[in-house]
Write a protein that binds this DNA or RNA. Sequence first.
DNA 1: GGTATAGTTGTAATAGTATAACATGGTCAA
DNA 2: TTGACCATGTTATACTATTACAACTATACC
Lengths: 175, 175
Amino acid sequence: MGWKMAHDDQGCPGCEAPDLAFSRHDHGHCQADALGRAEVLIAARGLRMTPVRQRVLEILLETHRAVGAYVVLDRLAAEGFGNQPPVVYRALDFLEEQGLAHRIRRLNAFTACMHPGEAHAPSFLICRSCDLVAEAPAKAVRGALEAVALMVGFTVEGSNIEAMGQCADCRGRAA
Amino acid sequence: MGWKMAHDDQGCPGCEAPDLAFSRHDHGHCQADALGRAEVLIAARGLRMTPVRQRVLEILLETHRAVGAYVVLDRLAAEGFGNQPPVVYRALDFLEEQGLAHRIRRLNAFTACMHPGEAHAPSFLICRSCDLVAEAPAKAVRGALEAVALMVGFTVEGSNIEAMGQCADCRGRAA
DNA sequence: GGTATAGTTGTAATAGTATAACATGGTCAA
DNA sequence: TTGACCATGTTATACTATTACAACTATACC
Ligand SMILES: [Zn+2]
Ligand SMILES: [Zn+2]
Ligand SMILES: [Zn+2]
Ligand SMILES: [Zn+2]
């Protein structure tokens, strides 16, 4: 298993370094790792990684930025897939349900999950200058949110936690 | 100052009880209090609480649910205000900038701030059954988020923290 | 192989959300 | 009263998302 070996041998940059999106890194590793893990996961769940779904995931994995549904759709259409919104929204919904992609509500856009498979309710750091989106560990944040909810008897079933701001590089460049 | 007296005399339900939206309460107090505080705040900042802005705020204050921009717009239009989207979006943007309303990104809708004036980056608990939205204290949550961001040198300038789930009442009713 | 079944994709039509650009009109201070 | 500034009205358009239905494909069972 190539992807697993690479992952174990040197650690998974995407998983271990939440700031990866903001720094120079071997993005080919991010892509190959996430794609490989996605395929294994989907198969293990008895589901099908169809051409459309795979292609959408690949497109999202090309960048650490969030991508709008219609940008993905244009890409799909140019490659001979359907060119109507449901084609891409269905694939995106599937990927999101399977934890392979996330919806960034602040941007009305989607981003590939950089560490699929691990149960997580992630948080996102969005740089307003370079538009990069980093998926950050949200265990503590999510815990705090659930604690607040618990106080009033509210059951948290899902959450979206997004921070807009500026990454270290962009702040340095501005100063 | 009526609003302030009422607020001080018996405490402000909206400010002190994050679950207020989910329980029976004197909603007239929420409305009067928030509206009064809003007017004082805006005046203190040298800004103008115009008829459109005031009316939009009043409409948002009618309920603890989030209200879509076009619902507000229809109300405005029926009352003789302009009937084009910018009319309502400008008012909503103004109210949000002044901390008098919040955008619930998960719902593409807006809700009045129930404790304007206090510096806050709130979190929201959204009940999927009754659609009520409670503004919960997010100091701890926001702190956790900023801690994560700090680790990677990211500066948080704004955040949206929303939890979808079920309130105590609705959960009880379902069981 | 045939055939029922469920799941996936394609397509048309429509609904819902938001902004750009420009014109008009009110407010307030020199 | 003039000018600067802000707010509102209006037109047009862009962007995001869903409903409904038709066609196709893999699969499982006979
Ligand atoms: Zn990873
Ligand atoms: Zn940046
Ligand atoms: Zn209050
Ligand atoms: Zn409820």
